[in-house]
Design a protein around this nucleic acid. Structure first.
Lengths: 137, 137
DNA sequence: CTGTGTGCAAACACTTTGCAGGTGT
DNA sequence: ACACCTGCAAAGTGTTTGCACACAG
């Protein structure tokens, strides 16, 4: 888990460096949990337009810098992809705490292999656990 | 998997029988996939007010007749609980087809046991797989 | 300089709340 | 008869789109 640097990441993906992009990426690197657009708006202040943040998220999603994190909160959340995420075919394990509301990636847990019925083509697995996290317990 | 009858279900849960409740429940029993409020509105026609359907969903959720199904579509989806769902501590396995957009419960697959790091208290597991379903393959 | 990013305005989609009147048991 | 359900109106929240101007490379 080497620490990412926004400027480097942007350069690697041939993305133009703008303040908004640097700050959004920085926020993801700093935060220990998945973020929604409203989360980001609160975090970086109202420095940038709502729309710009949405477009930044869409761009990062296309470039596989972040991935979607499912949640029942009504807002879509996103979290950094692990290094070497050329396809989105990886598996996600997340834990949502019902007390603090944060959703964290659980790196130490592997998604177990699952045998689907015949005829199904699996592309992605999204595993969300909810309960009380170690900080709120 | 005995077939449910709306009237019986309502009586079992001491819920007043109204047209909207019967129709919503009937739609869940008929449908082979998870439904959102907009889905229901389309399915039952505009016979009932949007708000009434939302309140019906909330009621069924409290009574453990339906459960939430995660999805990245922007709208919350719901599906029937299996019989004997007194707590919401059960595990869900769902498959979302990227072609037809339907989300189905995969009854034949068990959620594997997962070992969480120390300090985490697990309440619920929500497993969503996406890909191509057997009808669209 | 040129393609691309940004802010603003507006619209769209999903969900919740308050209240007055109607309905199930 | 009474509690509870419904429809309407309105507002709250999350997200998308179109356009003119500004900026990075």
């Amino acid at each position: 888990m080497s620490t990412l640097v926004p400027n480097q990441v942007l350069k690697q993906h041939s993305i133009r460096r703008t303040n908004c992009r640097v700050d959004v990426l920085g926020e993801f690197i700093t935060a220990q949990h998945a973020l929604s657009q409203p989360d980001l708006e609160r975090a970086i202040g109202e420095e940038y337009d709502r729309v710009t943040i949405y477009r930044t998220l869409t761009l990062y999603l296309e470039k596989c810098i972040i991935h979607k994190v499912l949640d029942d909160s009504g807002a879509m959340r996103y979290a950094l992809c692990r290094e070497e995420c050329s396809t989105h075919a990886h598996d996600h394990v997340h834990f949502k705490c019902v007390v603090c509301g944060n959703t964290n990636c659980i790196e130490s847990v592997q998604v177990p292999a699952i045998q689907l019925p015949a005829g199904y083509q699996l592309q992605e697995i999204n595993l969300l656990m909810s309960g009380v996290c170690k900080d709120c317990g």
